[in-house]
Every structure is written in C-alpha cells, then in structure tokens.
Amino acid sequence: MAECPTNMEVAKENNSILRAFADWARKNSIWLLHYCTGCGAIELPPTMTARFDMTRYGFAPMATPRQADVLLITGYLSLKTLKRVIWSYELMQAPKYVIGFGSCTMNGGHYWDSYITINRLSDYIPVDIYIAGCMPRPEAVLTGMLEIKERIKKKLPGGWLDYEKRYDWYKENQRKILSDV
C-alpha cells in the first residue's frame, strides 16, 4: 500500500471540539460509491456481504456520487470509463477520497501495454490509498479501508485538497489523453 506520491502540506491544525466531533463522525461512517469500474469489483460483494461484513466498520454502499465519500477504482480503467470516473469524482462533495484497487491502478498491471487503458491513475485523479493485488482478497480490501480510517484519524490531508491545488495539472493530463473533459 503506497502513500500519495506528492508533497502536500499537513491539514491546518483545527482543534475545536466541533471539528473533532465531525472528524470522529467522518471516520466512523464512510460511504462508498457503488461504482464497479473494472474486474476488481468482483471482490466487493464478498466484502459487503455476510462473511466479511464491512458494514460493521461503518462502511456502506451508496447509489450516487453526491452521497458518497469514497470512490473505488477497482482494477483497470479504460479511457471510456476514465471520462465518466472524472465526471463522477467531480460530482462528489469534499471531503472525498479515492482508493485504487489492484495493480492496474498503480502501474497498469497486466494490461500495461494496452492501447485503451491507463497506466498511472494518480496522473488523472488524486489517489489516497492503493491496495495491492490482482485482485485483492476481501481481507486486503478491509485492511485498505481501515487505513482510510487511520488517515482521517491522524488528520492527514486528503486527495481532494491536492486536486484543488493542482487542478490545472490534472486537467491537462486528462485532456492529453481524452478528447474532451
């Protein structure tokens, strides 16, 4: 599991009790966008259902980006899907996080030489956590999700701040590879 490869400033130290209360709530209730972008999504149903049960940690699947906190990029990302993923990511409301499932999001995985998939996800949208594997088992998925909770607890800055800061850089990368964004 790699960290986000950019240098970001640490979040402002805001010690008010309301902010602490809000952070505790945000840590314990994380809504995933139920958007299965690639073949790695096959590991999501076992994580949600009775055997591994991620709802006991406070995760829940939600239907639309407007309601979700976390976007899961599960597996390879074709250009067609990338356009829609960027649209969905921009519809989500801050604070929002992105989890990259599987090796395809890190370096292209075993589709590294395909003409239609991307190799580095973090060029196009900021990624907070990667979960290694092809595909990662539910235990690995759960560990990755719990890592998000740790990041919130430690008040580490999320990817959305980086997206705001370097918006032009991201947009240029997106435009280079897609025809219209």
Partner: peptide, 10 residues
C-alpha cells in the same frame, strides 16, 4: 452538473 449515471451528457 447533474448525476447522469455515467451517460456522458454535459
């Protein structure tokens, strides 16, 4: 800016 369920319609 509306949710279009991945139909790209802007």
């Amino acid at each position: 800016e509306g949710y279009t369920a991945a139909a790209y319609l802007p």
